[in-house]
Nucleic acid binder design. Structure first.
Lengths: 335, 335
DNA sequence: TCCCTCTCAGGGAGCGCTCCCTCGAACCCC
DNA sequence: GGGGTTCGAGGGAGCGCTCCCTGAGAGGGA
């Protein structure tokens, strides 16, 4: 590959400019206690030599890395190939972090092996902070990371919320609103397809569903999904078998709802006439289903950006309080 | 935040084990020229002290970082919030790189400012190699990165293919197959909605469409999209206005096809009876449209993994030849 | 027995940067 | 004008690791 030109060092710049290393360092780091003429001398030499600071050396000396890890759980088998959540969250968080001048190290935490790798990496002092995304309840990683002595936040409440601050949606409120909407429309047999039960978001959405139904004296009917389309399709099939007379479904997320819609279509049900469907998240795809999906808006992107800001705030001694972002029902055609 | 326990250094281990730093270094790095008893002594001390090598120091000394940058273009305004491509590509590439013991630094390249940041970062010697994803034709970044003297590859052919090796789909073949399929079904007025014309993938899919039509003596009808659902919906509307009698559409990707389906539905056209639709990529969502989408399979994930392997191969003196991955038509209901 | 070779452990000079400390010069106030 | 401040430049000791080099000891051949 290319010519590995030896890059100029800070010392080379110092020699070139006829000043000391210290002065160059000061100028490069934007300290104000430098005489203008020296600053000019240095800046000139920097430009002439094309000097770029060696961040590795800087990291060694300062014991900071300027890097934030985004640690995101990785589905075991590559089940979910196109996960809107992944894209929205990683993008939004990265943007926010990069805008703050941080580097982003992406780490997938799936297999035990990869978990070890993540742990090692963080333990090795390679990052100044970490942002965890969509950890499952059984996951030991959050606890391990939390005790590493670096700022850590979670996108979404953890099963062990006390471990670190987090930013979450108002899952309870949003789900309650969705189910009440179904009730208001006169639906009598309202089923739900939940997310993976070891995830707090799924738990919240489920328990709000249950609470609202219980308050209205109705019986709940549920099947378990895992936040994917195929799980939604399967679960819908099971629900239809269990109770062919159901007239509404609250899906724990839009992907599940999309899967459910397909099964309903194939079983000959009309939506919303025979069965109403409500999703959760309001991903872009919800606008393109037939009929368009009524759903609960929870901007993953905004949430991720807020999570990143929470983390950045921690570095400046900001508050470590959990943040709950509002959700709201978006009524379209499916319910 | 937590107690910043000073982590033990290599020297501490050496003292503890009663050997020299050099020996500890050798053991830690798995060199074979170490007497078994010394190795045991060291390993024991490592375990006792919980020693983890400081990779920053190691990087400084070795002038390697063990880190690969995944540089991915970022849409200007946050248009695309859930981009299946992003998820599939980043996930697959990360997996492959992490499995090879590399660290992954994710960099979004969007605004000129962020481009500068990426350039600086790579120039600063922070990464050993880079993997570019979905660069647009006008993007100056590939050329800049290519001359940095580190191994670089591209996921998808660049507008300037000679800059670096790449892994691409057989866009030409896949698109040709799709259009021929439409022809074979007796469709007479076949339109296309292209991707952004500054991306080679979009160009190839478009030119294959044109070539096949020209060979069959048919006239081409096109609208330009940008690989998003909304652009597909808009372009479809325009197409319908331009030529209300069209009976087939070849969409440059599935997202566009999904958008087009919605517009067709709203305009009262039945798919495939009135208008046949073929997409490209075979993302998971293509299975859940109504009707299910006929499309060209091109596993983004496999392609990304192959790209990562190509890059890893470069470090070991492997070939720098472009790789073209096969595509194939998946016939479902929409055409 | 002597010499040469070979194997391995230890010593220590960097890698490029930061940051504390020293020290000269300029500046001030009575 | 003297003593005290202030300000800013330079010197140099690390940061934790790698890797070259030296040298001790073992082994082998004649």
């Amino acid at each position: 590959m290319g010519e590995n030109v030896k890059r100029p060092t800070l010392e080379a710049v110092a020699v070139r400019a006829g000043v000391s290393k210290s002065s160059v360092s000061r100028v490069v780091n934007g300290e104000t206690t430098v005489a203008p003429e020296i600053r000019d001398l240095v800046l000139h030499a920097v430009r002439e030599l094309g000097y770029v600071p060696n961040s590795t050396a800087r990291n060694l000396a300062t014991k900071r890395t300027n890097t934030i890890a985004i640690i995101i759980s990785d589905p075991p088998a590559g089940l979910v190939s196109d996960d809107p959540m992944f894209s929205a969250v990683v993008r939004a968080a990265s943007r926010e972090l990069e805008a703050a001048g941080k580097q982003v190290a992406l780490m997938l935490a799936g297999s035990p092996e990869s978990q070890r790798r993540v742990e090692q990496y963080v333990a090795a002092g390679h990052v100044d902070g970490a942002l965890l995304v969509s950890m499952h309840g059984a996951d030991p990683l959050p606890a391990l990371i939390a005790r590493m002595g670096i700022p850590v936040v979670s996108h979404g409440r953890l099963a062990a919320p006390w471990l670190m601050p987090y930013v979450d949606n108002d899952n309870l409120g949003g789900a309650a609103q969705a189910v009440r909407h179904l009730l208001d429309q006169g639906r009598r047999r309202i089923a739900t397809i939940s997310g993976p039960l070891d995830m707090p978001a799924a738990q919240d959405r489920l328990s709000a569903y249950r609470d609202v139904l219980k308050d209205s004296g109705r019986r709940s009917i549920m099947a378990v999904g895992d936040f994917t389309r195929v799980s939604g399709a399967d679960a819908m099939g099971q629900l239809l078998e269990d109770d062919p007379g159901l007239d509404a479904v609250f899906a724990a997320n839009d992907l599940i709802a999309i899967g459910a819609l397909r099964t309903l279509r194939r079983s000959g049900r009309r939506v919303p006439d025979d069965v109403a469907v409500v999703g959760f998240d309001d991903i872009e795809a919800a606008l393109y289903t037939d009929p368009a999906l009524t759903t609960v808006r929870s901007s993953m992107g905004d949430q991720a950006a807020a999570t990143a800001r929470l983390l950045l705030g921690l570095f400046d001694g900001g508050p470590a309080d959990p943040v709950i972002m509002p959700t709201g029902l978006v009524v379209r055609e499916s319910a």
